[in-house]
Amino acid sequence: MRSQFICVDALNGDGKLVDDYTPTAKSGATYHPLTGNLPIKVATTGVDVFYADKQALFDVSLDIPDRSVTAFIGPSGCGKSTFLRCMNRMNDTIDTAKVTGSVRIDGEEVNDRSVDPVVLRARVGMVFQKPNPFPKSIYDNVAYGPRIHGLAENKEEHDAIVETALRKAGLWEEVADRLDLPGTALSGGQQQRLVIARAIAVNPEVILMDEPCSALDPIATARIEELIDELRENYCIIMVTHSMAQAARVSQSTAFFHLGRLVEYGPTEEIFTNPKDTRTQDYITGRFG
């Protein structure tokens, strides 16, 4: 079934990307129908995902606004994580996975063969379910991205990037005096903020979060949620979450997935107060999931 919000088809010409992904001017961006004043950052049309012979995602079309938080909710195995991983082509790392359909960021096709996933992933940061800092120092964790992407010329610039990223992730105060400590020595919540800092350090436009709080205690979760709310000012944040409360707290728009299909997508208040589909209603009222 098609999703209810048929999106305006993507925009910038033929969707071809040049060798190198340099951000193009956003002047031609169309504004998102849900939010009105926010431009569309990510537009997907007819995305199907297959793992080996099994289809995991069916024909998902959906537009995501910039500078806001979009939450994907739905029962386990409904394909929300799979869909998230389509946006930075993480599915490429799974041999048997096959993605068809169109995913565009700022109108540029992500699945195009000419797009280097490496460059793409620098623009689309990702935070995983379990905090996964590298077993290196806090400093190296954050500086690794800028280093491989050549974002800094010298030590001072690196230091500056690391500090900025850690500040933005709200971790600077806690770790400023022990940047040499291994990242794995931090607490779970701190680790997750470190991972967010690591993602911010390469200056992404979109940040994908795959259940970022599922491994954390309530206090750490609250801290992360606050952070997400702050980051919303500058980034397009897409998060998968299991917790409907969390989706309600931090997101502006919410998409509900079920059995590999997008069931309903709309402003968060509307989804939670006035769902149009009975399955959505059943899910938020706790009949299944």
Binding site: D19, D20, V119, I148, H149, G150, L151, E153
Partner: peptide
């Protein structure tokens, strides 16, 4: 500007 190159120098 290394950042403007495709790859590291």
């Amino acid at each position: 500007r290394a950042a403007s190159l495709h790859s590291l120098p």
